[in-house]
Simulated scan of single mutants.
Amino acid sequence: MNFELFEPELNDNILPCDGVVKDFGLILNVEQSEKYLQYFLKQLNWQNDEVYLHGQYFKTDRKVVWYGDEHFKYYYSGTLKQAQVWDAGLFRLKQHIEKLVGHPFNSCLANLYENGTQGVGWHSDNEEALSPKTGEETVIASLSFGATRKFSFKHKLKNHKVDLMLQSGQLIVMRGTTQRDWKHTLMKSTQILEPRINLTFRYFYPPKN
Rank of each mutant, 00 (worst) to 15 (best):
M1Q: 03
M1G: 09
E4I: 10
L5Y: 03
D12F: 06
I14S: 00
D18I: 06
G19Q: 05
K22V: 08
L26D: 03
L26G: 01
L28D: 13
E34V: 09
K35H: 13
Q38R: 13
F40C: 06
L41M: 04
Q43E: 15
W46I: 10
Q47C: 06
N48G: 07
D49G: 13
Y52I: 15
L53F: 15
G55P: 14
G55N: 12
Q56M: 10
T60Q: 15
Y74D: 00
S77Y: 03
F91R: 07
I97W: 08
L100K: 11
V101C: 00
P104W: 06
P104L: 07
L109Y: 04
L109C: 04
A110P: 11
N115Y: 04
G116P: 11
Q118P: 05
D125C: 05
K133N: 12
E137I: 14
A141K: 06
S142N: 05
F145E: 11
G146F: 15
S152T: 03
F153E: 05
K158W: 02
N159E: 15
H160R: 03
V162M: 00
G176R: 09
T178G: 06
Q179I: 09
R180E: 13
M187T: 12
P195A: 10
R196K: 13
Y205T: 00
P206M: 05
